[in-house]
């Protein structure tokens, strides 16, 4: 369970996150939607203790992330702007992360296998494609076999096979009673994966509920998103598309 209450963050004069509150329940995939710059990544960084909030709380299983003793065994995260050093080999990147949380070394091989990077494990990360980099990030998130997954734009750079793999992985994860928070600005991806959604715009939560509730009265989740965020740029060309499972 993720509980965020009255979370606020300023960068200088800019209010990036304004009194944000939501709950993410176990056994469900929750989409975290918003246009670029809406405050998604900042909220996730606050949740995971990378940035300091100016107010409010963000708890995972009732505790702040930084209070978790072996955090990766509880929470697996993939964040934009939290990546490997390009000169390090993929396997070495995962190995030090595993060591830090006392995760057995064999788990590194397991997750590499799981994300399909076994053959590239010995390559330096700078030689990875965007999709391989994403797979490495997902592998790092899965290292501790965590109860909670927090993924920021996990399908960026993935090919269709990879996207389907991530979707299935998240669905299976939630089906096993675990918690998944999936940040995205891709409506169709979210519609195809999530049970619930939180919509953020201008640093404030504008909708929070089941996907069906949020989409109610709209043609699709995408239409609902644009109506909620006040961003109508995409309505003309894409208003008729969307819906669960479509791209």
């Amino acid at each position: 369970m993720i509980e965020v209450a009255r979370l606020t963050k300023r960068y200088g004069r800019k209010l990036a996150v304004d009194d944000v509150g939501f709950t993410v329940r176990p056994g469900r995939v929750t989409g975290f939607l918003g246009p670029n710059g809406a405050g998604k990544s900042t909220t996730l960084r606050l949740l995971l203790g990378l940035d300091h909030p100016d107010g409010g709380t963000a708890l995972i299983g009732g505790r702040r992330y930084r209070d978790l003793r072996h955090p990766l065994r509880t929470v697996g995260a993939l964040l934009d702007g939290a990546g490997p050093v390009p000169e390090r080999r993929g396997v070495d990147h995962l190995a030090w992360i595993a060591q830090s949380n006392r995760i057995p070394r064999r788990r590194v091989r397991e997750v590499l296998d799981l994300v399909g990077l076994t053959g590239a494990a010995g390559q330096r990360v700078k030689g990875y494609s965007l999709g391989m980099g994403q797979r490495l990030g997902i592998a790092a998130a899965l290292l501790g076999d965590p109860e909670v997954l927090v993924l920021d734009e996990p399908v960026n750079g993935l090919d269709p096979d990879g996207i389907r793999w991530v979707r299935d992985l998240l669905r299976e994860y939630a089906a096993s009673g675990r918690t998944v928070l999936l940040s995205s600005h891709l409506m169709a991806e979210t519609a195809g994966t999530a049970d619930d959604a939180i919509v953020i715009a201008g640093g404030r939560i504008v909708a929070h509920g089941s996907l069906d509730d949020i989409s109610a009265g709209h043609e699709s989740l995408e239409s609902a998103f644009f109506a909620l965020t006040g961003d109508r740029r995409g309505l003309g060309g894409r208003g008729g598309r969307g819906g669960r499972g479509e791209w």
Partner: peptide, 19 residues
């Protein structure tokens, strides 16, 4: 300096959040 390249510090703090 490696910590401040490619967001390595973020990964480090995800792994060891007690600064």
């Amino acid at each position: 300096g490696q910590e401040f390249r490619a967001g390595q510090l973020g990964t480090s703090l995800l792994a060891v959040p007690r600064r």
